[in-house]
Write a protein that binds this DNA or RNA. Structure first.
Lengths: 130, 130
DNA sequence: TATATTACTTCCAGCGACTGGAAGGCCAAC
DNA sequence: GTTGGCCTTCCAGTCGCTGGAAGTAATATA
């Protein structure tokens, strides 16, 4: 399978057609060429890039980070340190978010536990927020 | 201080002026009245609502959930069960997100640890994504 | 061969929750 | 009187898609 239309490429990489077209529009992963009828034509290599982007997005990297990582993915002479730096940054983001969620969960679960959850109006949740 | 201009109300509730105006626009917390010159005028009660919304947003509730909770906050005859149900929903969301982040963190920190982070191109992070 | 359906194209709009900025009115101080 | 600050409205942009309209191309069926 040398050339694929967009729906086949989308199928192969596990992304919606719309998203593949969007990635092409923003110049993240472009179709290597167009057919005579104007259809985008994808090949195995571009599908690999799309898969790379999908996985990278699933890790919560932003599209711009994906672009950067894709550049490093493509660059056979990259330094692993460059990749590691971006990943560490992302890891720090995740840890910040985790701390935030843990604190939130702590407070909210306390409040939920202390709320009777009956027909009466008294509610420590509302009291805490107000 | 019976009537406040928007900047004073914003100062008092801890939100940016822009946000207070935005909340008024979407009908979440409107200024109780306008001055003759067209300026929004806030009072203590509306500032209390703004504070309520700020805290509720800080808990990660959506604006629509805030609207709902604000309704319950205002409703002296609410059932605490109604509030608790919303809070439990939110708690479940938090827990889902926590699980997701934990899994992400696990994988990514493994990868980061196994990456040499030097000048050489070999990179298990890229290898995993590609 | 004619038609119906599907797949593709582009472009525009909307999501959520703001945020920035332009253009203009209002008010107090110097 | 003019400078500066605060207020107003409205429009555009953020991020990462996603839905839909309108039009063209390819394909399947009658």
């Amino acid at each position: 399978m040398i050339a694929m239309n967009i729906s086949q490429a989308a199928e192969a990489c596990g992304l919606p057609v719309k998203t593949v077209r969007y990635y092409a529009d923003i110049g993240l992963v472009q179709a290597p060429q167009r057919a005579a009828n104007g259809y985008r034509q994808y090949d195995d290599d571009s599908v690999r890039k799309l898969v790379f982007v999908r996985r990278t997005r699933e890790f919560g990297f932003s599209v711009e980070e994906c672009r950067e990582l894709l550049g490093l993915y493509e660059d056979r002479s990259r330094a692993s340190a460059d990749v590691k730096a971006i990943a560490q940054q992302r890891l720090a983001d995740i840890e910040r978010k985790q701390a935030e969620l843990a604190s939130l969960h702590d407070t909210l679960s306390h409040l939920v536990q202390s709320c009777a959850g009956d027909d009466r109006p008294d509610c420590p949740i509302i009291a805490h927020l107000g």
